[in-house]
Write a protein that binds this DNA or RNA. Structure first.
Lengths: 153, 153
DNA sequence: CCCCGATAGTTGAACGCTCAACTAAGCGGC
DNA sequence: GCCGCTTAGTTGAGCGTTCAACTATCGGGG
């Protein structure tokens, strides 16, 4: 039997297009600012943030990948770059000989601390300054719902 | 004078993280599905969609870049690929000798028509099925506001 | 104790995007 | 009619991501 496509109705269509436009423009802008001001793409910034928040400023590669919403491969390449920049150091995991631990260096922490104010300001200016408190709450609920939904399917 | 960073409050922090997680996971998923089922990334799909909706299924490169939310350079590279795949054809613009017109080929249209149902189904399953009608409306307003805000700054 | 499937992580190639530099052509003022 | 600024579009290098293939280790069942 032929399953009919459940096409988007006009409301959904408009929402989807607006979402695509906005999220692409937002991330492009933030990425460009971060690249210009801190010399790193947003994905790398996020890796440094997650490491900085972890106990001992270190995480197993897999946990870091999970935290940063990254594939293992992507993280592996990224950490290689961050290591070359002197911002991250790799160590053998003491409890699992397969494992590697990524450690944020002092240099990495300092770089992150220097980049953070500008980036946060960008997030505020480009996103939160445009939204009412109610909309911020709506966006949080929507995002949490979608994220939850995606991991379940 | 030192300008104090306007850090994110806990609500904003949570919203921002949820948004990052959800939008990354959503786009990654749709991109992977489209690559698997139609052999093209989402950015290329969108270019074909815009062309298919234009009168004569053709657009000036600049207009296409604008419509697809792409830089000129990105579009130039993308159209080169789409042309190699036989989905798009370049023609000289009759009214501006600097100009190029991207034309969707019949092959491109057929490919798009074959890819669309699966992709729309994905958008519905991964996004709209998780949201209430009210949330869809909220997401539209938020997205339109942010997009508007970004183009003004 | 030894398989064997699962898990941890890396690697290289192919591909897409960004950035800056470039060519070519339009256009306004003198 | 020509100069200079702007606009249209392309190009190549460098970087980040993806995908599949690979090595190494873990850990449970026989």
């Amino acid at each position: 039997m032929v399953v009919m496509t459940r096409w988007l109705n006009p409301d959904e269509q408009r929402t989807w297009r607006a979402y695509l436009t906005a999220s692409r423009a937002l991330m492009d802008t933030l990425d460009r600012e971060l690249q210009r001001d801190a010399g790193m793409p947003h994905a790398y910034y996020e890796i440094l943030v997650r490491l900085s928040e972890a106990p001992g400023r270190q995480l197993r590669m897999s946990d870091l990948a999970e935290a940063a919403g990254s594939s293992r491969s992507r993280l592996s390449h990224a950490v290689a770059r961050l290591e070359a920049a002197g911002w991250v150091r790799r160590e053998d995991c003491p409890t699992d000989r397969r494992g590697q631990v990524a450690v944020l260096t002092d240099d990495g922490f300092a770089t992150l601390a220097a980049a953070a104010p500008g980036h946060v300001e960008g997030v505020r200016r480009h996103l939160f300054d445009a939204l009412s408190p109610a909309q911020i709450d709506q966006l949080r609920r929507i995002s949490e719902t979608v994220a939850e939904h995606l991991t379940r399917s």
